[in-house]
Design a protein around this nucleic acid. Structure first.
Length: 607
DNA sequence: CCCAGCACGC
DNA sequence: GACGTACGTGCTGGGT
């Protein structure tokens, strides 16, 4: 093998097609006798809630797999899936898969209530190496030196001419699908050892793996939108957008595309010459972002109009006019996809739609939050951690001043201001508090004097004084930060409270900029990552409590430090108490964890 | 089709 | 002299 890789042609394998329902029953019986089975589904699309099954593959012995084509005819397909229901719903058989949340959701379309311990190879690899890719093809090459059959070999290259799996001959799918289940099994056998070697067992088996079921149900439940209100917002904002755009064109005195930052820059700085020496981006284009425009907003009324146009346009294109297209026609709701293996720190991410970046600050943004509503006669409940990252910072650093402030229940930003400005707590004014708040956030992110000076719009020397004062009062914070960087340098990684690792090879780079990035990551990753760990623990506990207590209310969203619920009225008191209890007791730190809870007829009111 | 610029969240 | 606060997703324009 000149390449050093094997593939299906050079590897012994026995992949069997399952033809009849009689054979399916025989296979199902065999599966039910296994301890652990690797599975994979082939479907008509990438959204499990809108796709139909094309086939299912199974493997429980390396080199052997079974492929079960599923009928395109719905009733027959249901009968076929039902044959395997006893296997899928058997709690004592563990199932492995690559991104098994997808398979769980796909099968839920067919009434399958998936059960049993899970092993997701994608999630396992994410814990082992969060910053690498977690695709099966990539893992097969690195761990098995094996080149898999690529999906493009079946359905053609990406693009509008790409074929659908349902149009491919099952005989052709056989090897591809069987290989997927087989390779997943082989990877599982390697990765489960790696998880142990890297001390990731608790994080993997107690947190991330149970979370797969939690996320599956959240995605399945979905979030209801007030589509009528959305439509009204669309009409109103479109009108406002057109108005503002024509005002901009009028002021510019020439027609151009207001949505083009390049053209905006040329109009403002070449034609209108609003200021001398405007800043440029690295590509030589004029920089026209909010920060730059804000600085020159007093020079000409067009600047304010451009900022307003940008805000409305964002709201319309990203949210208001996109959501209706993402509403599931069967459920009438949006079903985001929570990705468990993207963020290097351990956070979740959300797509299609991203429900973790819904506006909240300005007035128009608030209007948008109102369209997120609970089911008929139900209640929207929102619970969020108060200052979780700073509390983690206090705990990890052991800084007595910071711990003391939290233990006394003080407003942490005011307490910080009181310390760094050497002022009595009651004499801290709004400006001092704001400065301290910015400094606190900066600390978590590994800020520099320059960064803080930019944020606060103050001279660099003054920013440096604030930081110096911060570190002298919270000296534990300073030494924790130094230790984090030192640890990264010695071990090559930093870790969270639950042992989630982030590797930082750049920490020893001779390039100061590159090294600076790694150093800030060494400070931030354990904090942000521990917060991610903690809310995941809470989510699993809450999910289990809801199940155990047979409640009908559902957790529907996670936004990093916030959990949202669709609550039935009779369960409101229970939910409020239980959720806060589970969030606050997810872990014991040297400072209390505090969760606030809100209730209302929509997300805006509840939050 | 991909990247840059921008803007939204935590 | 350049750099300069973490983590994400998605839209649009513009050049390939």
């Amino acid at each position: 093998m000149p390449t050093g890789f094997t593939d299906i042609d050079t590897t012994p394998h026995n992949y069997k097609m399952i033809h009849s329902e009689k054979e399916m029953k025989e296979l199902s019986n065999i599966l039910c006798k296994q301890k652990s089975v690797s599975i994979d589904t082939e479907t008509t699309g990438v959204d499990p809630l809108q796709s139909e099954l094309v086939g299912i593959s199974f493997a429980f012995k390396e080199g052997e797999a079974y492929y079960v084509p599923i009928s395109p005819e719905r009733d027959k397909a249901q009968r076929q899936v039902d044959i395997f229901k006893p296997f899928f719903e058997n709690d004592s058989i563990s199932k492995s898969g690559q991104n098994i949340k997808y398979d769980i959701l796909e099968l839920k379309n067919y009434g399958v209530d998936f059960k049993g311990k899970l092993f997701d190879t994608m999630v396992a690899h994410y814990l082992l190496n969060p910053e690498l890719r977690h695709g099966m093809d990539y893992m097969a090459e690195t761990y098995l030196k094996y080149k898999t059959i690529h999906i493009e070999e079946l359905i053609g290259p990406k693009g509008k001419n790409q074929k659908n799996m349902k149009d491919i001959d099952p005989k052709v799918i056989l090897n591809y699908a069987s290989e997927d289940a087989d390779i997943t099994l082989k990877l599982k056998n390697i990765l489960e050892k790696e998880i142990i070697t890297n001390n990731l067992e608790t994080l993997f088996y107690e947190i991330e793996t149970p979370l797969i079921y939690v996320l599956s149900e959240m995605e399945w439940t979905g979030v209801r939108l007030d589509l009528k209100a959305l439509e009204e917002l669309s009409i109103q904002y479109t009108k406002e957008l057109n108005q503002v755009e024509s005002e901009i064109i009028n002021m510019a005195g020439v027609d151009f595309n207001v949505n083009s930052p390049k053209q905006i820059g040329e109009i403002l700085f070449d034609k209108m010459k609003i200021i001398d020496n405007p800043k440029k981006t690295k590509t030589g284009q004029y920089r026209t972002n909010e920060e730059e425009l804000e600085k020159i907003s007093s020079k000409h009324p067009i600047i304010g109009k451009i900022l307003e146009q940008r805000g409305i346009k964002k709201l319309l294109s990203t949210y208001i006019d996109s959501f209706p297209l993402l509403v599931n026609s069967r459920t009438g709701k949006v079903h985001t996809s929570f990705n468990q293996t993207v963020a290097a720190t351990g956070r979740l991410s959300s797509t299609n739609p991203n429900l973790q970046n819904i506006p909240i600050r300005d007035e128009r943004g608030k209007e948008l939050r109102k369209v997120f509503i609970p089911d008929e006669r139900n209640i929207f409940v929102s619970a969020d951690y108060s200052q979780i990252e700073l509390r983690i910072m206090a705990h990890l650093s052991g800084d007595p001043n910071m711990i003391d402030a939290f233990n006394k229940g003080h407003d942490i930003h005011a307490a910080t201001a009181s310390k760094i400005f050497k002022t009595k707590l009651e004499d801290v004014n709004e400006d001092m508090r704001r400065t301290a708040k910015t400094a606190n956030f900066g600390i978590i992110y590994g800020i520099t004097p320059f960064g803080l000076s930019q944020r606060l719009n103050i001279p660099r020397t003054e920013a440096k004084e604030i930081i110096d004062e911060y570190f002298s009062t919270f000296s534990g914070v300073k030494s924790y930060m130094d230790q984090s960087i030192e640890k990264a340098r010695e071990k090559g990684f930093v870790e969270t409270l639950f042992g989630r690792k982030r590797y930082l090879p750049d920490i020893s780079s001779r390039n100061a900029t590159v090294r600076g990035f790694a150093e800030r990551n060494a400070i931030n990753a354990p904090i942000q990552g521990s917060a991610a760990d903690i809310i995941k623990v809470a989510m699993v506990s809450i999910f289990n409590r809801l199940k155990k207590d047979r409640k009908q209310s559902k957790m529907i969203l996670q936004v990093h430090d916030e959990l949202n619920f669709n609550v039935i009225p009779e369960e409101l008191e229970y939910i409020k108490n239980m959720v806060v209890e589970e969030m606050e007791n997810a872990i014991n730190l040297s400072v209390p964890l505090v969760a606030d809870i809100g209730v209302g007829e929509n997300w805006m009111i509840a939050h």
